[in-house]
């Protein structure tokens, strides 16, 4: 998979490149700032972009802003944003245009090489990967919306859906059966007033969006 990496730490840039190449990704560009990232995407038209949030010159949210530009100009490029700390506000920005083919993870997650690569593949395949820490922050805001009606277990399931997990993945994580997961998801759909005419996958995205929308309301 053709990938561009934007990361200002030399050490991490080299490390990420090594990890990706070991796993069979093709790193076509490795740059150290947002401007370099945009130029590399323009030049190489990669399938996947991995960007650090904090880069020169202001060291605040350059990565998030560059990711939004990439999303607008080249919507077909999947984006994984990495950060030393995750903030729901940045997640809300990233997800404001569409919730597919986007990921936002703590940098720490890179250490778990296998699951990090799995997240990358999921994002490249059009899915989402939100860090559990972001999801926890997003859940915090849900209290005064229709999401209030969800049970604790349903919230947990919805959080995992927002992380981009499949039903199988959710079942494994919660150590419950897949049919139990499906039951919870139907409960969520019902409580969020999402009727079956919206279609299965579509409803799933809508539920996650509702979950994220409460944030901005």
């Amino acid at each position: 998979m053709r990938t561009v990496i934007a990361e200002d730490s030399v050490l991490l840039r080299a490390g990420l490149t090594k990890v990706l190449e070991t796993a069979g990704f093709e790193v076509v560009g490795a740059v150290d700032d947002a401007a370099g990232l945009l130029a590399a995407v323009e030049e190489h038209r990669p399938e996947l972009v991995i960007a650090d949030v904090r880069m020169p010159p202001t060291f605040t949210d350059e990565g998030v802003r560059a990711a939004l530009v990439v999303r607008r100009q080249w919507p077909e490029v999947a984006i994984m944003v990495l950060s030393q700390y995750v903030e729901e506000r940045y997640a809300a920005d990233l997800l404001s245009q569409q919730t597919s083919a986007i990921g936002y993870l703590l940098k720490d997650r890179v250490a778990d090489v296998e699951s990090f690569l799995e997240s990358l593949r999921r994002v490249a395949g059009g899915g989402t990967a939100l860090d559990p820490e972001v999801v926890a922050q997003l859940l915090l805001r849900r209290q005064d919306t229709s999401l209030d009606r969800l049970t604790a277990r349903e919230r947990e399931v919805l959080g995992l859906m927002a992380e981009g997990r499949s039903n199988t993945g959710i079942a494994e994580l919660l150590v419950i059966s897949e049919s139990a997961v499906a039951k919870h998801i139907n409960g969520i759909f019902a409580k969020l007033d999402l009727s079956s005419s919206d279609g299965g996958d579509h409803r799933r995205v809508l539920a996650v969006l509702r979950f994220l929308d409460g944030e901005r309301a």
């Binding site: 730490s9 090594k18 940098k107 250490a111 778990d112 090489v113």
Partner: peptide, 21 residues
């Protein structure tokens, strides 16, 4: 952020890579 954290991430990543490969 610029020093210690990046080094630690890199260390953890290398250990993770070693563990996986």
């Amino acid at each position: 952020h610029d020093g210690t954290q990046q080094r630690l991430v890199s260390l953890a990543m290398n250990l993770g890579l070693a563990r996986a490969t």
